[in-house]
Design a binder for these strands. Structure first.
Ligand SMILES: [Mn+2]
Ligand SMILES: [Mn+2]
Ligand SMILES: [Zn+2]
Ligand SMILES: [Zn+2]
Lengths: 138, 138
DNA sequence: AATAAAATTGTAACTATTACAAATTTGTAT
DNA sequence: ATACAAATTTGTAATAGTTACAATTTTATT
């Protein structure tokens, strides 16, 4: 993704969010840094641009984004939540060595039905060693 | 499960944990109440027996249990962690209406490989409506 | 019984997140 | 442009789960 400001604003409007300077910067950050950032990552990432930026504004923004389906919150058992601009269902792999988080497609033989239950959403997380870290430790 | 004290103590020793009065009570609670309790649930559950019980002791105990493979910590995106005496891989369904948490078996042919990644553990969580709550809301 | 080791307690610290009111910015009508 | 209203942003305080750690109590060993 490499959208200009007008396109970013349209994207927000599509999701019923009135564009604002912080919302545009946060959305752009999320699109350009698809690393499943924490609130603090976002704060540090766009803080240089906005000297008076408050962490609360990032919280407000990601919560609004979540409510309106712009991001999905992901929880990997860390203390901080992470936010994913990719809202389509997919799995996450967290490397326990380097901390990187990788996307992977949901296994096609995954059980997507449980009799008499209504499944609204699922969260599929794996933990282990990524290829680089695995190689490093032979 | 309905083990007597001696059996509970043996179970702990098998996991290299020296039995103690609190550890025995917590383990028994976890076996008798397989509801994926929080620290607070455990504290309230066994607090009547031990008037001087401290929450810190529950934290100490569940952390020790986790380290030694007696329980597995589960994280359902709530603020509190939950603890599961069933350490075999299985999925969790959380009802968003009543809050109950249900176990479900993972498909045994579930894709447990990602090429070049080493998977140490996985966490599979579904969210939605349980049969009772689904029926209630027609 | 004396001593050492381990378990338990109580309090304070830490930290992610939210609540909320004040301040600032943006939009609108005159 | 000015005045006013609405929305956004900020700053600080409150909340809550968890951990750090020293003091106390319990358990084991000599
Ligand atoms: Mn992702
Ligand atoms: Mn379970
Ligand atoms: Zn890695
Ligand atoms: Zn239910």
């Amino acid at each position: 993704m490499d959208l200009n400001n007008g396109e970013i604003m349209d994207y927000l409007r599509e999701k019923d969010i009135k564009p604002s300077s912080i919302r545009i910067k946060v959305l752009k950050y999320l699109m350009d840094n698809q690393i499943h950032p924490t609130v603090d990552d976002i704060y540090k990432g766009i803080g240089d641009d906005i000297p008076t930026l408050s962490r609360t504004s990032i919280y407000n923004t990601v919560n609004l984004f979540k409510q309106n389906g712009v991001v999905v919150e992901i929880n990997l058992g860390e203390k901080e939540s992470r936010y994913d601009i990719n809202t389509k269902p997919h799995g996450h792999f967290k490397c326990e060595k380097c901390g990187n988080i990788y996307d992977f497609p949901l296994p096609e033989n995954l059980n997507k039905k449980l009799s008499n239950f209504t499944i609204n959403r699922m969260s599929i997380n794996y933990y282990g060693l990524c290829p680089d870290c695995r190689k490093e430790s032979e």
